Amino acid sequence: MHSVVAFTDTYLPTVNGVTYTVHSWRDRWQARGGRMDVVYPDADGYEPENGEYPIRSLPFPFYDGFRFGLPRVPRAVRNVDVVHAHTPFALGLGGLRLARREGLPFVVSYHTPSSEYASYLTSRRRLEDGIERLSESYERWFLGHAAAVVVPSEATRDDLRSRVGDDVGISVVPNGVDVDRFRPVDATAFRDRHGLSDSDTLVGYTGRHGYEKCLSDIIDAAAGLDATVVFGGDGPAREHLEATARERGVDARFLGFLDREELPAFYSSLDAFLFPSPVETQGLVALEANACGTPVVGVDRGALSNTIEEGVTGYHYDLGDTEGFRAAIERTLDETAELERRCLDRRESLSVEHAVDRLADVYDAVTGSGA
């Protein structure tokens, strides 16, 4: 098994899709006898394990909870076969520096289009457009140094290829779901703990509350439905969401950050998971919900067009179509039992083990070995 070092701008104790992917891949890789070190921004609340190297970091002023790690390479990182960057910024540049200095294969995971976050830097449309163009130009430069670019879905591969061309080798490696953890569970204790009635119909979302995820569309679609909307997680858009729910008279509960151990019960408590984000590169939380038997109603845009199987694991609606969103929720609630069965039939295909199998193929290809 190859020795790998991963550079990431987000890691524990922060919980998000990138953190989960890096950590779960590391666990599985090391369980197979390989080595995967992780270089990440230091943060209070997490004690690093062997092979995890926190780097001095600073708060990022434009995005609460995100820390900016200095692009350094720890001296303890040595004797590796592959450098894998999970970010094009900060620590990703540290990974690129190491790969170029040592002549090592450089692999990049494309988790999020950086241009999507231009709105966090400015509210001026012309300046935002300029930042987006600059971000895309920078991405092309960074990805151009990669021996392989890893994306989590076919839709993301096609979108990225349309912007960077065919000179960059792109491989699809789904993030994968820990199906041992994410499975249907008895959610009674979870509902009781959070004051949610067993008799209520529950729909909801968990994850980062970012403006780019269009979460207010959930509030708009839920107006008039006989259902309680449950939000797990936190982020810069939370205050706006709470105010919107009050204005629309929607019964919405905001649970805040949920420990990862609580998520299977969260998903299992829902009758439908709602996902209006048009910027997903895979939509890992949708797959986690499906693994727990919960169907997903998601926007027919980006990776969610493929992540959700129409009429099998949930239903789609068109971006901006509030009535269509509401109708898709109602249809899902009418068919919950059948959709749950179909979701559970596909659990094993979502496994992180399959993802790590594909990751191993990528590492073998860039190193020119089958080791």
Rank of each mutant, 00 (worst) to 15 (best):
Q282A: 09
V356M: 10
G130C: 04
V73G: 00
V177R: 08
R346D: 13
E52L: 00
A365S: 15
L350R: 14
G302D: 05
D200T: 12
F190E: 11
E139M: 11
R78W: 01
V149I: 14
Y267Q: 05
N175G: 13
V108K: 02
A291M: 10
T228A: 06
T336Y: 07
E242F: 04
S268L: 12
G69T: 05
L333K: 04
R157W: 02
V366G: 06
F182R: 01
V172A: 00
V108I: 14
V5N: 00
P184M: 11
D192M: 10
D345F: 09
E49T: 03
T188P: 08
F190V: 10
L255Q: 08
L12I: 02
T336N: 05
D226N: 12
L202R: 13
V230R: 01
I131A: 12
Y317K: 02
I55G: 00
V168S: 03
S3C: 10
T8W: 08
A222F: 06
N290A: 01
E49Y: 00
N306R: 15
G298T: 11
S277A: 15
R301F: 08
E139V: 10
K213H: 11
E239C: 03
I329E: 04
P184T: 10
R78N: 00
A148W: 01
G324D: 06
D345H: 13
D334P: 02
D81H: 01
G195T: 05
L91D: 04
S199T: 07
G249S: 07
V279R: 07
V83Q: 03
A337E: 15
Y11M: 05
G311A: 04
P59A: 08
L270K: 05
L225R: 08
A337P: 10
H2Q: 11
E116V: 11
V38P: 00
L143I: 08
L98S: 04
D159P: 06
S268A: 11
H145M: 01
P113M: 06
A221L: 09
W29M: 02
L202W: 09
C292G: 06
A155P: 00
D166H: 14
P59G: 02
G34W: 05
E132Y: 02
V279I: 13
G103Y: 02
G232T: 09
E239Q: 13
E340V: 10
E338F: 08
D42P: 00
P174G: 09
H23R: 13
R208T: 11
